[in-house]
């Protein structure tokens, strides 16, 4: 009989192995989709650290994703940096921004925290529009194929795109898994369950939250930067309120506070919208219905239900 901890590791390892193997079987269309899904799922993993594990509901994570996206995108388009440097710049931008916003927003809690994060993200979105000269606003800009080469490998190529997205997802998932199984992660869960009690056990709750916001913001920025480099498009829509709502939606759907939930929610939502946008232009209707349904009937999400019913050992 395996220990619960080992089962947990094997289950997540299995998922990664499956995703790796998948690229050899998928038809081209879904091949591209999966690359996109894994990048956005990494963003959702970053979001989940804050929302699912620590219990802080941010409505402004798009600003961190966009910080990575624009940080690396502008580093290439405006300053001609190489892909590697651009990636570092993107993550650094998200890291700094999350530290600043975290320090301010953590003075509030509950509904006020949501609105403060929403407002900062909105200010970020408007800033992108204001500097339209460089960002080209809503229309966005495209990074040339020639500029998206890492160590001699073109990132716009199908195979390397999938592999890069997979690598990013591996890093995010393993980081998240290691974190939530660590002492630090257990304190985060304690904060989510009962903040006052955690404080009165001698933990500096604000410090833990602050570190988590930076970590969450940096992972989101890493995903954003990777998105820009792999898909070569940088546009203001990624900084809009929608892109703050999406990770919430994916995480809620897949299961907040589960490591694999963000991926499950992302795949589900992606194909739901993909299928319905073939039928109607009002495909966001699906997102709306799903949100209401989740709030009312399944606040635990898919993997949350799986954990509470079947695999109780799942992280």
């Amino acid at each position: 009989m395996m220990s619960d901890s080992k089962k947990d590791c094997f289950a997540h390892g299995g998922v990664l192995l499956f995703l790796f193997a998948l690229q050899f079987f998928l038809p081209a269309y879904h091949h591209g989709n999966m690359a996109r899904i894994m990048v956005l799922a990494s963003y959702a993993i970053g979001y989940n650290l804050l929302f699912g594990y620590t219990g802080l509901l941010s409505l402004g994570h798009a600003i961190f994703f966009a910080a990575g996206l624009y940080g690396s995108g502008l580093a290439i388009s405006q300053f001609g940096f190489s892909v590697g440097v651009a990636l570092v710049i993107g993550v650094a931008a998200g890291c700094v921004l999350s530290a600043v916003i975290g320090a301010l927003a953590l003075r509030t809690e509950g509904v006020a925290f949501m609105i403060v994060t929403l407002m900062f993200a909105q200010a970020g979105y408007l800033t992108v529009l204001y500097f339209g000269e460089f960002t080209r606003g809503d229309e966005g800009f495209v990074l040339a194929h020639a500029d998206r080469v890492l160590w001699g490998v073109s990132l716009s190529d199908q195979t390397s795109k999938y592999f890069s997205a997979f690598s990013l997802f591996c890093v995010s998932l393993i980081m998240c898994l290691a974190l939530v199984r660590s002492r630090f992660g257990k304190v985060l869960i304690a904060i989510r369950e009962n903040e006052e009690r955690t404080q009165m056990l001698g933990y500096n709750v604000v410090w833990y939250k602050f570190c988590t916001i930076i970590l969450s913001g940096s992972i989101s920025a890493l995903a954003g930067a990777t998105y820009a480099l792999l898909f070569g498009y940088v546009g203001a829509s990624f900084a809009s309120v929608e892109y703050s709502i999406y990770p919430l939606l994916w995480v809620l759907l897949g299961g907040a506070g589960t490591v694999i939930g963000p991926l499950v929610g992302m795949i589900f939502m992606f194909y739901l919208i993909d299928l319905s946008s073939g039928v109607t232009t009002a495909y966001m209707l699906v997102a709306g219905v799903v949100l209401v349904f989740l709030a009312v009937f399944a606040p635990q999400g898919v993997m949350g239900e799986v954990r509470s019913r079947i695999w109780k050992w799942l992280s």
């Binding site: 509901l57 409505l59 509904v111 949501m114 709502i245 919430l248 809620l252 009002a282 495909y283 966001m284 209707l285 997102a287 709306g288 219905v289 799903v290 949100l291 209401v292 349904f293 989740l294 709030a295 009312v296």
Partner: peptide
């Protein structure tokens, strides 16, 4: 908040 975001999209898209 989650539910009313959903309602927002439903009303808008309908």
């Amino acid at each position: 908040i989650v539910a009313t975001i959903g309602i927002l999209y439903i009303l808008q898209q309908v």
